[in-house]
């Protein structure tokens, strides 16, 4: 392989590193350190489910809390190459064949991140509502 190609490959790797640094530094939502009280509301209208769970936690991200309370919340997850997706709650799995998914909102506002990127903040209510697209 000629020197020009090797130089371009090195430059591409350096560029990737720089872009990933910028993403992690500026585009990921900030986390809050320490203990916080958060609530998780689960709505599955078809099953008549509307439950509210309140937890005190030191976790930074919602996924860590969901994982810790997996059994109580009846949560299940699916791992993809791009990350973890919430597949079920209260032992109810969202059926892709029926176009179902769990819509996430934070304090009533549509979430802009997935469960792995959503930071936990004191007093926040995370609502998971089974919806169809």
């Amino acid at each position: 392989m000629d020197k020009k190609k090797i130089l371009l490959i090195v430059l591409a790797i350096v560029l990737a590193g720089a872009l990933l640094f910028v993403y992690n530094k500026f585009m990921l939502p900030e986390t809050v350190e320490g203990e916080k009280e958060v609530s998780i509301r689960i709505i599955i209208e078809e099953e008549g489910v509307d439950r509210l769970f309140t937890y005190r936690t030191d976790h930074d991200y919602l996924y860590a809390l969901l994982k810790e309370k997996e059994e109580e919340l009846g949560a299940s997850f699916e791992e993809y190459s791009f990350g973890v997706m919430l597949a079920g709650l209260m032992d109810y799995r969202a059926e892709q064949a029926r176009n179902e998914f769990f819509h996430i909102s934070v304090n009533g506002e549509d979430a802009m991140e997935g469960i792995q990127q959503l930071p936990l903040k004191d007093g926040d209510i995370y609502t998971f509502k089974l919806m169809k697209w």
Binding site: L20, Y23, M27, F82, G83, D110, A111
Partner: peptide, 15 residues
């Protein structure tokens, strides 16, 4: 909103 979230979440993978 889901689309924006999907894209932001996937930026490291796109890079």
């Amino acid at each position: 909103f889901y689309g924006i979230s999907y894209w932001i979440k996937g930026i490291p993978f796109d890079i």
